[in-house]
């Protein structure tokens, strides 16, 4: 009985969400999200990616409950141990539990990825849409600045910035953010140029809308979906750059359990105790793969040229 009423209620929700004539702003918006979710859900690889990313978030949030040991507790008697029931992924050369360090390291990874995304994506979006919509000399100046940033290899520029700012995780984040906005600006500009002369933009211009309003509430919403996809696909690259900086000793400083720095520490014992460097390597690989799969799935759902319209 209760099962039946529950399924009826679920059906009611579905019908409400999929209604072709919504009765309020929120219903229309939620319905749109629900349709996007339905098409996302049918993509199994994307769901796997989402699962990995959610697991990463879960691990980061509940790290103290999941990790069996303090990630920085050194037990020199137990150093460089192989996998065992006490130490699932073994211990490193200071006798620290690698599993606990991986779990706490997920916090750093997430911290880096989120901060880079919320710094770089808005800068790229603002520069790209402004250049694309205003055109003329504004476009020339902004895009030449973008070109200058793009002319340097990303990792080399990040290295130069971190060495100038001083090693540390915050500086690594700033360096990665500064080197990763230019591609977003290019994407946003290209999208803006295709949108700029469309009739619906002419229509708001004829209503007397100012430039800021046109860019912010008419052009930006159409650029965000391709940007979200691109940022998600770049997350793997951001993680790898952060790990690379950590590996070179310019990112997170010891004893922070940053995955790249952990690989770097395991390098010395790679031949005899391979797991010390390999386990954080696998963690980086899985998380990068998760973000890539999620990005691919989001592209199928959000890309204004294919999904999201019907």
């Amino acid at each position: 009985m209760s099962g039946e009423s529950e399924s009826l209620q679920a059906l009611g929700w579905r019908a409400w969400l999929l209604s072709s004539s919504p009765r309020s702003r929120n219903q229309a918006r939620l319905g749109r999200f629900y349709i996007a979710w339905l098409s996302f859900r049918s993509n199994h690889l994307a769901m796997l990616g989402l699962g990995i990313v959610l697991a990463l978030i879960f691990m980061a949030v509940f790290a103290p409950l999941i990790a069996p040991y303090d990630p920085n507790a050194q037990v020199l008697a137990d150093r460089l141990q192989y996998f065992s029931a006490e130490h699932w992924f073994g211990t490193d050369d200071f006798g620290r539990d690698i599993f606990s360090r991986i779990v706490y390291g997920s916090r750093l990874t997430l911290y880096i990825v989120i901060l880079v995304a919320i710094i770089a994506a808005p800068i790229g979006l603002a520069v790209g849409t402004t250049a694309g919509y205003l055109g003329g000399w504004v476009d020339k100046v902004l895009m030449r600045i973008t070109d200058i940033f793009l002319a340097f290899p990303k990792l080399v520029l990040a290295l130069a910035l971190v060495s100038a700012l001083g090693p540390g995780i915050e500086n690594a984040i700033i360096a990665i953010a500064i080197t990763s906005w230019p591609p977003y600006a290019r994407i946003a500009r290209a999208e803006t140029i295709t949108i700029r002369n469309s009739d619906f933009i002419s229509a708001v211009r004829l209503q007397g809308a100012g430039r800021l309003r046109i860019i912010w509430s008419h052009i930006v919403p159409l650029c965000t979906s391709s940007l979200i996809v691109r940022v998600t696909l770049d997350m793997a690259g951001i993680i790898l750059t952060a790990a690379g900086l950590g590996f070179l000793g310019l990112g997170a400083q010891p004893p922070l359990p940053e995955w790249g720095a952990m690989i770097s520490a395991g390098r010395k014992v790679l031949l005899d105790q391979w797991w010390v460097a390999t386990v954080p390597g696998i963690a980086i690989f899985i998380v990068s793969l998760g973000f890539n799969l999620l990005g691919d799935g989001l592209r199928d759902v959000l890309d204004p040229k294919s999904g999201g319209q019907s």
Binding site: R25, A28, S198, D199, F200, S202, Q207, G208, L222
Partner: peptide
Amino acid sequence: FYKLVQMVFQDPYGSLHPRHTVD
């Protein structure tokens, strides 16, 4: 001026913002 003069475009598929509701 825009309160005085308004325009209707040729292509109704291109003249409405695809991500905005009628409202």
